[in-house]
């Protein structure tokens, strides 16, 4: 009986250290830019949730569309009500595998993250080139990629079509820390 308990306690310890393999941030930053000769538009989201599981080498990101803040209130309103329809689709998500995860160390390491991105209810496969840095107990990830509005069936009215770029530039900065309950 005693040995069973010892075994169980040992197992719990191992299990606990294993749970340290999850890294998380609740205030990652995602920004996007649309640049046309007529107008530059940018928005920022500071409430990005991102989780990295180092044992499965997977990464999951979840963001709220309404958390994007624009310089102009009217743009933010159009973005939410007409383009992204955030009442119907309040979240955008990404789930993927970190390729070459084992290479990541203290120096900036280029790693692709391959997975599925879902925006405006439309899912698409994507490879996001990212830069990983693992210092102490933090995993910092940053990168930049482009998204085409038409891939996510986001329709822009003809009247403003010249003001909004077809390809939107997205940048992200996610500083993951070990997850504690």
């Amino acid at each position: 009986m005693k040995t069973t308990y010892t075994f169980l306690i040992c197992f719990l310890f191992i299990y606990n250290t294993n749970s340290q393999e999850q890294y998380l941030t609740k205030n990652g930053v995602i920004k996007f830019f649309s640049s046309t000769p007529i107008e530059d538009i940018k928005a920022e989201n500071n409430q990005v949730l991102s989780i990295i599981d180092t044992s499965t080498k997977k990464m999951a990101i979840s963001i709220l569309i309404k958390s994007f803040l624009f310089e102009k209130a009217l743009m933010q309103e159009h973005f939410n009500e007409n383009y992204l329809e955030s009442d119907k689709f309040p979240k955008a998500t990404f789930k993927g595998d970190i390729l070459n995860f084992n290479k990541i160390g203290g120096l900036e390491t280029k790693c692709d993250v391959k997975g599925i991105i879902t925006i405006h209810g439309v899912s698409k496969e994507i490879v996001i080139p990212s830069i990983f840095t693992r210092i102490g107990n933090t995993i910092f990830v940053k990168g930049e990629f482009g998204l085409f509005l038409e891939d996510f069936s986001i329709k822009i009215p003809r009247l403003v079509v010249k003001k909004i770029a077809k390809e939107i530039k997205v940048t992200f900065e996610l500083n993951h820390k070990p997850y504690k309950k």
């Binding site: 609740k26 409430q47 949730l49 963001i63 709220l64 958390s67």
Partner: peptide, 13 residues
């Protein structure tokens, strides 16, 4: 604050 939704937590901005 303004409620923007729920991820792991309820978020107010």
């Amino acid at each position: 604050g303004i409620c923007t939704g729920f991820l792991m937590d309820v978020i107010l901005i």
